[in-house]
Amino acid sequence: MHELGIVFYIIRDVKKVAEENALKRVVSVVMDIGEVSTIVPEYLTDCWRWAADKEEILKGCQLEINTIPAVTHCDDCGKEYPTVAHGKICPHCGSTRTWLLHGREVEIREIIVPNN
């Protein structure tokens, strides 16, 4: 359900770009999705197929997902570490004064359209 809502936002934004550029068709949409964005990529592509095919300019349009690794920064030792493996606690110094640097992105990176 969450992913379907996200798909509706993607469709809205892509349709806006299509309108501004007078596009008749979009071949694929490339997304940057952070590892800890709470989005399940498989659900997102399933929801995409269902919803995109209902839109004339998005029929058959592929959704490509780039996963952005989650990285956390530690304020105490200044180092960075992979969030998924270590969570909130810095594996270098044990501090909990840490914050997420990357990994929550839900961004439309680009769209690919016929060149005519």
Binding site: I6, Y9, I10, R12, D13, V17, N21, V27, S28, G60, Q62, E105, V106, E107, I108, R109, E110, I111, I112, V113, P114, N115, N116
Partner: peptide, 23 residues
């Protein structure tokens, strides 16, 4: 379908926009 798409000429439009931005 993907194969067909590769055959035709395409161009890339960069967007770089968070879907939360408008909200």
């Amino acid at each position: 379908n993907h194969g067909i798409h590769i055959m035709e000429e395409v161009k890339v439009i960069e967007i770089k926009k968070s879907i939360f931005e408008d909200n």
